[in-house]
Amino acid sequence: MSQNNPDTSQKIALRNVDRAIADLRRGLPAVITTGQETIAILSTEMAYDAEIRDLAETCGTAPLFAITAHRANVLHVMPTGDTTILLTIEDWMDASLMRALADATHDLDQPFRGPFTRLQGPIDPIHDAAIKINKLGRLLPSAIVCPVDTEKAASIAAEKDLSVVTFDEIFSYDDYSARQLRPVALAKVPLQGAENTRIQAFRPVDGGIEHLAILIGDPNRHDPVLARLHSECFTGDLIGSLKCDCGEQLRGAIKAISDQGSGVILYLAQEGRGIGLMNKLRAYKLQSDGFDTIDANERLGFDADERVFRPAAEMLSLLGFTKIRLMTNNPEKVEGLERCGIEVAERVTHKFPSNTHNELYLATKRKRSGHYL
């Protein structure tokens, strides 16, 4: 197949991002380039002093500390209007301190930090890619970055065996990965209260994150199907956490669809509204410290909701569904699916009583996220 074929180019792009993510998660550097600007980065969460020194020696430039505007606001760094903020790494800022600066769970333990020197002037968008790829890797959204001479970048990467990925590949990853989803395995899985159930697994061609469709009964493809988009929740779905209503929503959706006769639940690998399980546990720690669910995510440097809807839209299309009756209280799910070409014929209310552990969580979703609760 020609390398100019869009499918082939997308596969290469997915591979490049996956390799860079794997290296970053191992504490190794990766190179990001736009063709005009190039940087080498380490994930702050996985960086240690020796690796930062090696990075500076490899690049021949002083490293900088990249954080999101959300995180900078918490650290009392003046905003610039940019989504990424660059700080000078002072002599007193070792790797251990920077890891703590990236992780909001240390804020109350170490309240007096700084002052920080913010890099002046416009920030090149390539630094947004350094943050984005850490998010894709379910790492804290922060990086140690070093400028690299673009003309020398290829030889440096080859000499040091560094992964190289482009700005466009990083920001196309969510869409490419979703569009490359393919059905992998289908099996009958009788459920309590819904014995006539099959589970269809989907996997992108790069072997990345897998999603599941829970098909109950024999849904009619001609009429709008009763559907639920459910983000996986280890704590709520599996071990019965009372901090959220996810487990009740999942089991309630199974019952409601079974009672009607047929429908589909998309079980999406988007734990913690897309920030991953480790970061969700960090957010839980911040909630225990008194912050609500949105403030907790933003203190960690994330947006309030990092989920994307393209995977769900692609799965529905592959299953033959173009119109749905969506069980949700979240208006963003309706809008997100419709932007991706799925017609939401009806929003079906799907809510459950609060308890003493999740009443603030549900109130926050209602007041700050516009959920119909």
Rank of each mutant, 00 (worst) to 15 (best):
I324D: 06
F321P: 06
A95C: 06
T328H: 13
P141V: 00
G247L: 04
P141K: 01
S96P: 00
G81Q: 09
A40R: 02
V205N: 03
R221Y: 03
Q110C: 11
R19P: 02
M93S: 01
A62W: 00
E169A: 15
L226C: 09
A227K: 02
E343A: 12
T58E: 10
Y361L: 09
L181C: 08
E159V: 11
A40T: 08
Q110M: 14
Q249S: 05
L87M: 06
P219C: 08
T83K: 13
V225N: 06
M93H: 04
G341W: 08
S258T: 07
F352V: 11
A178V: 07
G236I: 05
I170T: 00
A194W: 06
P141I: 01
A153L: 08
L226S: 08
E248G: 11
I342T: 13
Q36P: 04
A154F: 15
E169G: 09
D128W: 12
T38E: 11
H230D: 10
R325L: 09
T197A: 00
A158Y: 09
L215K: 11
G193F: 08
F116L: 03
R310F: 03
T83Y: 05
D107W: 06
F112M: 12
A304V: 13
N297L: 10
D103T: 00
A296Q: 04
G207R: 03
D289W: 03
S369W: 01
G240H: 02
D223M: 09
Q120D: 14
K188M: 10
I254S: 00
Q192R: 06
W92A: 04
